[in-house]
Design a protein around this nucleic acid. Structure first.
Lengths: 338, 338
DNA sequence: TTGAAAGCGCTAACAT
DNA sequence: ATGTTAGCGCTTTCAA
């Protein structure tokens, strides 16, 4: 049976009600399995909805349902970048867990820029999300004001080094840096250098470096040299930076990289020069990207629980528990490069 | 001045109107820069909105504005995976261009599963998005029905090998495979093998292989061997698969990988065995991931315009042009491995 | 068990 | 230039 509708007009609950011969509220009850209704009414509504190809309008649903309490089925997510696989990993954990509970992820990418984050928060808030997930603990004052006024759950993910607004899920980047230094010192390296990318933007990398230097200081050491590149991390940047570093300070015996991308580039640099790793120079990364486990010499790095962070964020959000910090820790991934 | 509001109640346009001493519609006009209003009214509204911390409710806005014509400021995006950097790259191009035009991206990940895509399409449609962006051309019949009934713009990205529903932006995966084979044949390789991942799920990879084999056939050749791994692509899988392949069929002189992840793993395999590349065995990938340009021997691969695809999708969507296919092509990235 | 009716916050005629 | 009014599609009292 063909149904004729005004072109461009989508099927509404009223259409379904008419087709099923019941009232609109009955349709609503049946479709959401709420209230009570007769078996017969249920069948007729379901049949009519299927026949007409009814697709609920959640804009209207959210508006009517609980607009005052600010809860649609959307969850806003803001990450700094999509170019570094670390953030897609977080997203993966989040969306995977969120999908199951019927939430849709609305995402924004702020390019490591707090001002951009502020604009994205304002934009996302206009969709009255049930919750907002941010990356890191540092935000502009205006962002915090917006967040507070929104009256929804806020999760800050990845970094636990500082106070959060509501729920915080991640690990201590400072502790990662500290543990990395302890490992290298324990291996006997003494002339340690750092190779990293733009620290002004990647605050987590800066915290790792701070932890690293703190551990050195505790052992009476200090950073022997550092090489920073402009812009984001990449294998190309890591390769070029290590190249420059070793030309400038050849006595360096171990290098701590801002992350695995950079470290992989560093490893390629060593291969290109024919330097033996770790004898000529030891390499240590961060994040334990899958790829670095397949290197001829697996990279020594720290495994960070990215998927689990995403999953945990989603769980805490939907569970409705109290505010607080969840530290998921990290783990040494002992490779053959340090 | 502190403003007291019922706790949990968000500031509405009515609150702003009252505070500014104007009518609701004037507030609406000012805030959206539509219609006409006096300079004075404009100032008072803006001041009141800022003071009260007004955040527009786009759920209500979309519902009132043009719910019938089905256009909110949301764009739904469905990708098969977030684990393979190819898709975050597409997302990056998309969200970057979409943000600028005031659209928010709502994303779904279907794990290469058409049934899951169908569920995601139904879910996304309930937010009455202005448009939907899908990956690839293959969908379930029910998905196509939903899409047709929705009456919104649809973009299918990445693959141009087949008819689309509305707008198609990408490149010919078949042509990529074909050109890859031509390159290897031109280099003099004759015992060519394929190393890939789950072809039943990654249909684009399957099309590349089909194009590859077609080119071989045109030269009177055929695939000398193939090694397929279960599950998704990864460096680890590429490494293990090449290892198994070369043990089984040592006379192979060139390997075409399903993508750069796999090829990088293959390169690591060669390094581990001390095989010279490309003399012992040549390697060819797909996608030209940044990382492969930093290898001691840059990987020979095909550069695919992922960011540009994302950007172009966004542009076509917002431009409101006619349906059609946009082939953005691809380019040989001549490395040192083939 | 069910329908009628009143909004949710906003936009878009329509008056003025 | 600006206020009033009628919905957008849905959920939720409130009666019946």
């Amino acid at each position: 049976m063909t149904i004729h509708l005004t072109p461009g007009r989508l099927v509404t609950i009223a259409d379904v009600a008419r087709a099923a011969g019941v009232g609109e509220s009955t349709v609503s009850r049946v479709l959401r399995g709420h209230g009570s209704f007769s078996k017969k009414a249920g069948e007729r509504v379901l049949e009519a909805a299927a026949r007409l190809g009814y697709v609920p309008n959640r804009l209207a649903g959210s508006l009517a349902g609980n607009a005052a309490s600010g809860g649609s089925g959307l969850v806003g997510i803001i990450i700094p970048s999509l170019a570094n696989i670390v953030f897609p990993d977080l997203l993966r954990g989040l969306t995977g867990a969120l999908d199951v509970t019927g939430f849709q992820s609305v995402i924004g990418v702020n390019d490591y820029d707090p001002e951009r984050e502020e604009a994205l928060v304002a934009g996302l808030l206009s969709w009255r999300p049930a919750a907002l997930v941010l990356t890191g603990l540092e935000h502009t004052a205006a962002t915090v004001t917006l967040l507070r006024a929104a009256g929804i759950r806020i999760v800050e993910m990845i970094d636990t080094d500082g106070p959060g607004l509501d729920i915080v899920v991640g690990f201590s980047n400072r502790a990662v840096g500290h543990a990395s230094a302890r490992h290298l010192i324990g291996r006997g390296y003494r002339r340690l250098a750092y190779v990293g990318h733009d620290l002004g933007r990647d605050l987590r990398a800066a915290k790792r470096l701070a932890g690293f230097e703190a551990a050195l200081a505790e052992s009476g050491l200090s950073l022997h040299a550092r090489e920073l590149v402009e812009g984001p991390s990449s294998a190309a940047a890591g390769r070029a930076a290590l190249d420059a570093l070793m030309a400038r300070v050849p006595e360096v015996d171990a290098v701590y990289f801002s992350n695995d991308d950079m470290a992989l580039g560093g490893y390629f640099c060593c291969l290109g020069h024919g330097w033996t790793v770790p004898d000529r120079v030891a390499l240590f990364g961060c994040h334990a990207l899958d790829i670095t486990a397949s290197m001829p010499q697996p990279l020594s790095t720290m495994r960070t629980p990215r998927l689990e962070i995403g999953r945990t964020c989603a769980e805490r959000l939907t569970a409705g528990g109290p505010p607080g910090t969840v530290d998921l820790g990290f783990e040494l991934s002992e490779g053959a490069t340090a």
